[in-house]
Design a protein around this nucleic acid. Sequence first.
DNA 1: CAGAATCCAACCGGATACTG
DNA 2: CAGTATCCGGTTGGATTCTG
Lengths: 118, 118
Amino acid sequence: MRARVEQLKSGRKRVLEACHEPCPIERGMRLIGGKWKGSILWHLKDGPVRFNDLARMLGGASKKMISQRLKEMEDMDLLKRKVLNEQPVAVTYEITPFGRSALGILEELKDWSEHQGI
Amino acid sequence: MRARVEQLKSGRKRVLEACHEPCPIERGMRLIGGKWKGSILWHLKDGPVRFNDLARMLGGASKKMISQRLKEMEDMDLLKRKVLNEQPVAVTYEITPFGRSALGILEELKDWSEHQGI
DNA sequence: CAGAATCCAACCGGATACTG
DNA sequence: CAGTATCCGGTTGGATTCTG
């Protein structure tokens, strides 16, 4: 899976996986289906969240996992990293419009899980 | 992630992952988010499909992958395996009502992928 | 046709310790 | 606080070969 970079009007870049799966479902899963990715996005829906708060929300994920995923998701333009101030360092992660466009799927998934008693 | 077995009225069993993630999104992803799982389910929506046909539809997946996923998904009651006849052996995979209940999510995912040009 | 068996390299992800 | 660095065992998944 190789990355393709698309220039956005905003000046930022969106890295799309040059994932040549014929199936759009598989391609979508590569973006938001990885471990923790959906959860991360979901927890950002009500506003920016700080790193350690996110870690607490995710419960089982290690810092390493989280920072890896966050980096990937920033590259894909699903979220944006912001350094607020220094001493002590404060960083927040904020969902982008593109990331927000995926929330509907996640909400359906959430409802499904809950209704099916999973 | 340990399995819990639930007895269904049909007599079949559904293996639910005793996945204690606090987040329902993460739990749902464990069921239909794995590599190929969503695609498999999607390709079964119009009726039973045979093993090799499925392999062709999925393009990049090896037989090993597919048979592993199919087994997992049968255990989770997302689909049902049926041996049709013998010489040469014919087997089809058919989506269950439970599996069908997840199709809405996959359809949204598919639309999203296509509209976002992923 | 529909897999199972085996081999093996690559990656994943947890634990721990360290940094600015 | 928000990570990075390193170690390391376990899992994943491709390639290949074999079977009823």
